[in-house]
């Protein structure tokens, strides 16, 4: 039997399409409005700060800070059950976006709030998944 697979995003979702498209090149993209400077993340087609939105894409450095996290011990999803215990975290990228991801460590006790983390990429056919690890 095949190993259980991570549930992957679809490229057919209108708002997040360009974000996931860019992950093919291992680029972490976010939007900012050229008209009112509002940071827009998750991606959208409209600016949430003004009605004359002029959204432009920017590439994040991939560096960020753990805002909060949990060590998941129990999940009924076959893939995540196979990974447990694993760390889910809200990560504040240095450029401002707050992203949900995993912090990949051998021991979950290594993770802490405020920890500096850096993106790495899990490769799939159509896209790459942004995962994080502590900055060494």
């Amino acid at each position: 039997m095949a190993d259980p697979q991570r549930p992957l995003p679809t490229l057919n979702e209108h708002d997040s399409h360009a974000f996931w498209q860019a992950t093919k090149n291992k680029e972490l993209k976010f939007q900012r409005c050229a008209n009112c400077q509002t940071l827009v993340f998750f991606p959208r087609s409209h600016c949430t700060g003004c009605t004359d939105g002029d959204l432009t894409w920017h590439t994040a450095s991939g560096l960020g800070t753990v805002y909060s996290y949990s060590v998941v011990r129990q999940s009924y999803h076959p893939f995540f059950r196979s990974k447990a215990p694993y760390v889910v975290a809200w990560i504040d990228l240095d450029e401002g976006p707050r992203l949900l991801s995993n912090v990949e460590v051998s021991d979950p006790a290594e993770v802490s709030v405020g920890q500096r983390v850096q993106v790495h990429w899990e490769e799939h056919d159509e896209l790459c998944i942004p995962l994080f690890a502590p900055v060494r």
Binding site: R6, P7, L8, P9, T10, E13, H14, D15, S16, F19, W20, F42, P43, R44, S68, Y69, S70, V72, Q74, S75, Y76, H77, P78, F79, F80, K83, Y86, V88, A89, W90, L99, L100, S101, N102, I129
Partner: peptide
């Protein structure tokens, strides 16, 4: 503790890959 299947909202499509269970959401 159910697997968060890939939903249809833009937010779901950005988050579901991380496997945040409902308990983990509150735990954060």
């Amino acid at each position: 503790v159910g697997g968060r299947g890939m939903g249809t909202t833009p937010a779901d499509n950005m988050e579901s890959f991380a496997g945040m269970t409902l308990v983990a959401n509150y735990a954060m």
